[in-house]
């Protein structure tokens, strides 16, 4: 059984391929721990309520709102943050398609798009919409993001 008391304790998180020791309260969300303990600020704090997707990270390759997970729940699981996706073609595509304005929602969209491309590269428009509705953007109007996501999926299927 995993136990964690009500005071702070040290646990290990597996982030972007590395193992890291962090000091946490049971009540600390994964979002807070990634940001404050590991300096991985790509996951943004924007609603802490699972409504906006700005804090999206991947756990076992699945997109998750890191504000809706406790850090203690996430030990022993591979976690990927935007910092772990260095110079991926998804990032290039978001730049090329003008899918970025203020940039605050961008890491969340890119990680969600990455997970979609990995698990369902042949996703229909309906599936793309179902996935991407988890992320809010207030600047772009979604058109450019939609183009970027579709381009990423196309590139993925062409490669397979």
């Amino acid at each position: 059984m995993i136990k964690n008391g009500s005071s702070k304790s040290v646990v290990k998180l597996h982030v972007n391929g590395d193992s890291h020791e962090v000091t946490i309260r049971s009540a600390d969300t994964l979002l807070l721990t990634l940001r404050e303990q590991l300096g991985l600020n790509g996951a943004k704090r924007a609603c802490e309520n699972g409504d906006c997707g700005a804090c999206t990270i991947l756990i076992n390759g699945e997109p998750m709102h890191s504000c809706l997970s406790l850090a203690i729940e996430s030990i022993n699981q591979p976690i990927t943050t935007i910092e772990g996706l260095k110079a991926s073609n998804i990032q290039e595509t978001f730049v090329e398609k003008w899918a970025i304005q203020c940039g605050y929602c961008t890491p969340g969209f890119i990680l969600n798009c990455h997970a979609l491309a990995e698990t369902e590269p042949n996703a229909t428009d309906e599936v793309i919409e179902e996935w991407m509705q988890s992320n809010l953007c207030r600047c772009t109007g979604y058109q450019e993001i939609k183009e970027a996501v579709k381009t990423v999926l196309q590139a993925k299927t062409n490669k397979i």
Binding site: I82, A87, Q91, F94, V95, W98, I100, G103, T106, P107
Partner: peptide, 10 residues
């Protein structure tokens, strides 16, 4: 945009 690459990198 000159800010886009870093924003994409998070």
């Amino acid at each position: 945009r000159i800010d886009a690459v870093e924003k994409a990198a998070g």
